[in-house]
Simulated assay, not measured.
Amino acid sequence: MKNTRTILAEVDPVWGRICDEATKAVLDEPLLGGLIHSSVLHHPTFERALAYRVSMKLASGEMSEQILREISDEAYVSSPELGQMARADLVAVFERDPACHRLLQPLLYFKGFQAVQAYRIGHWLWENGRSDMAFFFQMRISEVFGIDIHPAAKIGQGIMIDHAHSIVIGETAVVGNNVSMLHSVTLGGTGKEDDDRHPKIGNGVLIGAGAKVLGNIDIGDCSRIAAGSVVLHDVPARKTVAGVPAKIIGDSGCDQPAATMDQLLGGSQL
């Protein structure tokens, strides 16, 4: 007869593996037992654990953990795709970040993953007409994680933001699926216009550290943007751009640059 843990692993393999890793982590480091039990092992589902983790990180004297948790639980119940997107993000971090050795790590420790999940709840609030609460989420995400994502921005799944410091994503920005970006990336506008003014990032794009992509421009699928580049014009699919201002310097080098995280070009690092 199958035990509960075996059944859990079959129904939700991501959550089952996280729970197994959490159990082992408590044995390896008992002093983290309280954190790991409250964040993982006390919850029946991945979504409930995420709601708890987001609410604990964003809570402050201005908004209690209980209220934020109720909002987060409501979001996951009413929009099940949020949980599936979170799973895709988690697996993306695990597969692309060489410093990530367990699925448990992003959930507990990686602010890039945590910030994206908090943004997703803020975006759900925005889409449901609760703009003021969405702006509160944006404010707290910026204060806690150092990442400023407008809640109206549209971001796909399988997103990996490595190091996740000083990320800015504007109101009308669109980010496709399976995108990887490093720290200090800006997806911004070029002036004070209030219409569609931010970049549209295709699927599978790799954006290097410190890159600035500005204006209502299209970045084609599976392209690469070199670190420190300033991109002001459209980038065709499967091309690499570099420089200030950025210019096309070759093909992207592989079919899925965001997955391989290959930042080498001509012997130099992007």
Rank of each mutant, 00 (worst) to 15 (best):
S229G: 08
P30R: 08
P13K: 07
E127Y: 00
S38C: 11
K111E: 02
C100P: 00
E62C: 02
F110N: 01
P257A: 05
S39E: 13
N128A: 04
A9Q: 14
T186G: 07
M1Y: 03
P98V: 04
M63G: 00
A173N: 10
N3M: 02
D196Y: 06
K212S: 13
R130Y: 05
I161F: 02
H198M: 04
D195E: 14
V241Q: 03
A152W: 07
F94N: 02
M160Y: 14
H123A: 09
A22E: 08
V14D: 03
I225K: 05
A173T: 13
N3D: 15
F113V: 01
S55G: 08
N216H: 15
V14Q: 03
L82M: 11
L90D: 08
Y119A: 00
G208I: 03
G146K: 01
Q138V: 06
I149L: 06
A86W: 11
D132H: 11
H150T: 09
R53K: 12
I121L: 11
Q269F: 14
L32G: 02
N3E: 06
I248T: 13
N178D: 14
W15Y: 14
S78N: 15
K192Q: 07
P245L: 09
L182T: 02
H163I: 04
L187P: 05
L41S: 12
D132N: 10
D162W: 05
R224D: 04
A115M: 07
S252L: 08
H150Q: 11
Y119K: 00
V175G: 03
G189C: 12
L206M: 14
L90C: 09
R48C: 04
Q269G: 01
R197M: 09
L68H: 03
E127A: 05
I141E: 06
G158V: 06
D262Y: 03
T240V: 04
R102E: 14
A86V: 07
F94E: 01
G243D: 03
Q256F: 10
E171K: 07
E81N: 06
L206D: 03
A259R: 14
H101D: 05
A226S: 12
N216R: 15
D234C: 10
K200E: 09
Q66Y: 06
N177L: 02
V244K: 12
I201Q: 11
S60A: 12
A173G: 12
